[in-house]
Amino acid sequence: MIDTFVLVIATVVAAATPLLLAATGELVVERAGVLNLGVEGMMLIGAVTGFAVTIASGHASLGIPAAALAGAATALVFAVLTLTLMANQVATGLALTIFGIGLSALMGASYVGTPVAPLPKLHLPGLSDLAVVGPLLFGHDALVYLSVALTIAVAWFLKHSHAGLVLRAVGESAESAHSIGHPVIAVRYLACLFGGAMAGLGGAFLSLSYTPMWMEGMTAGRGWIALALVVFGAWRPWRVLAGAYLFGGVTILELHVQGANGIGLPPQVFSMAPYLATVAVLTVISAGKWRGRLNAPASLGKPFRPSV
């Protein structure tokens, strides 16, 4: 019983990690006042790059940074278009997703069906061998810990660091931030690159640990769910963390209910769960008593061009 419980929790963590990485990245982007809808595309580019580099070099330790770089490079395209050339952020984000789906499929065509060794679980002497707590807390791979560490880092950065304060100022009122001398565009560029790198890492987790293999369109809407998680988390890192794990739970619950399906429902009905859950959660969050507590950055999605 306890073993099953531990196993289930481990799968929940695995399902939550790509969402957490991508959503935390997007949170920083949105706190800087930029709406990048291309998360799905950046995740796919990261997934295929991480996979290809790992296969070519034989080292996931090279594949993972490559995935982050590829995600950041994809985000750079978005940043140049929206921040320098003032293109519509919604349209550019959609273009990034369409482009990312196509390019990743093109890059990955020769890797379909290639197996890869999943990321090793870190073994901490002593800790990992503890009963229950060991496998629960200390039996995951490096990206899982990295995702939590980065979320903590982002939470600290936004709340306690001077740079984080500047970033929030840029996101709340670009004009005011500019007028007291903060480099609005540069801050937004950096935020976009960070968001891209995080989405890339999320993708790499899918292709190197979760699946582990490369498939066309393997993110299956996770980039969009990550975007929804940022709204769900009211632009706060800790709530995004909770949301990611909640969604990981929904995904796994779906698999288990599907497995123990006694009522004879078609499996596709259960596959709808994460998408319907997203719609339901967004509705609950946007309506009702939580409404007042939503704190979307005031400049979110608004283009800014320094007047001088």
Binding site: L85, F99, G102, L106, E216
Partner: peptide, 26 residues
């Protein structure tokens, strides 16, 4: 050529369009 190449072309086209729209407004 993989079918995905079409998506790459379509995505690029939209990128270039959005980029060159800069000339419309500035």
């Amino acid at each position: 050529l993989p079918q995905a190449a079409t998506g790459v072309f379509q995505g690029m086209l939209l990128f270039y369009l959005l980029a060159s729209d800069f000339l419309v407004r500035y």
